[in-house]
Amino acid sequence: MKKLRVLLAVLVVPGLMLTASCAKKVVKPEAAVSKSDTTAQRVVPPPPAPVDNSAQVAALAARQKFQAEDVRFAFDSAVLDMTAQSILKDKAAWLKANTGANIVIEGNCDERGTVAYNLALGERRAASAKTFLTNMGVAPARMATISYGKEKPLDPGHNEQAWAKNRRDHFVIK
């Protein structure tokens, strides 16, 4: 252990000194350029005239939100609580506004519980969301479901914080 520390000191310390000195060398000429050549900035062509793409940006943001926002579940439950239902209402609205989009609902579980049971539970979770969205007026043919059981945890941790994140439906636009 001691040897390792000495070795680290020998290798790392000069390395740090080297990077520090290099950084200084680089910084100085840059500072010199920006100070002396003030006319350079005027030569740079102006940015292209702003286009009103706020609608596109908003659409992209909505699409990203659709895929990023998971629906979460309590342990050993496929019941949609108020938060889950509220998220699903947003998703239903997006799906109705984007009728060309088909999705896959991926049901997931936390690591607790046995493999086959979690596969079944994950399927129930995906089915819960699909039923809810169908009831909100989304055509069931646009929605596929798949269960990953406990095989694809979002958070690899072994605590309630991680488990809460992993008990989820994840939504993917095909």
Binding site: A116, L119, A120, E123, R124, A127, S147
Partner: peptide
């Protein structure tokens, strides 16, 4: 749907398994 949790019938070339094509496993 899924095909999960197979279990063979002892001494036979038959097995039980859970299939969810009807909507639930």
């Amino acid at each position: 749907g899924m095909g999960i949790s197979p279990g063979w019938v002892p001494g036979k070339f038959e097995l039980g398994a859970s299939l969810s094509f009807s909507g639930d496993p």
